[in-house]
Computed example of a mutant assay.
Amino acid sequence: MLNVAQIEVFRDRLLRERAELLREDAQSAEDRGTVILDQQSVGRLSRMDALQRQAMAEATQRRRNARRRRIDGALQRIEEDEFGFCQDCGDEIAFARLELDPTVPVCVSCARG
Rank of each mutant, 00 (worst) to 15 (best):
M1T: 14
N3V: 04
V4L: 09
V4R: 10
A5F: 11
Q6H: 05
Q6N: 06
I7H: 00
I7R: 02
I7S: 00
I7L: 06
V9R: 05
V9H: 04
F10Q: 02
R11T: 05
R11A: 08
D12W: 09
L15C: 06
R16D: 10
R18S: 10
A19E: 15
A19M: 10
A19F: 05
E20H: 10
E20S: 15
L21C: 11
L22I: 12
L22P: 00
R23N: 13
E24S: 06
Q27E: 14
Q27N: 12
S28K: 04
S28T: 12
A29W: 07
A29S: 09
A29D: 10
A29H: 09
E30N: 10
D31H: 10
R32E: 08
G33T: 04
G33E: 13
T34G: 09
I36S: 13
L37V: 15
D38A: 10
D38R: 11
Q39H: 13
S41F: 05
V42M: 12
V42G: 07
V42C: 03
S46D: 14
R47E: 13
M48N: 14
D49W: 05
D49R: 08
A50H: 00
L51N: 13
Q52V: 08
Q54D: 04
Q54F: 10
M56F: 07
M56T: 12
A57N: 03
E58H: 10
E58Q: 11
E58Y: 07
T60M: 09
T60N: 12
Q61E: 12
Q61P: 00
R62V: 14
R62A: 09
R63C: 07
R63T: 04
N65P: 02
N65M: 11
R68P: 02
R69Y: 02
R70E: 14
R70V: 02
R70P: 01
I71F: 06
D72L: 11
L75F: 08
E79P: 04
E79V: 13
E80K: 14
D81M: 12
E82Q: 15
F83W: 02
F85Q: 09
C86Y: 04
Q87A: 13
Q87W: 00
D88S: 12
C89L: 06
G90N: 09
G90V: 06
E92I: 07
I93D: 02
I93V: 10
I93C: 02
A94I: 03
F95C: 04
F95S: 07
F95V: 14
R97F: 05
R97V: 00
R97W: 02
E99Y: 05
E99S: 03
L100S: 07
L100C: 03
D101M: 06
P102M: 03
V104P: 02
V104M: 09
P105D: 08
V106Y: 01
V106Q: 06
V106E: 01
V108W: 01
V108N: 05
S109H: 06
C110F: 03
C110M: 06
C110G: 01
C110K: 01
A111V: 00
R112M: 13
R112D: 13
R112K: 11
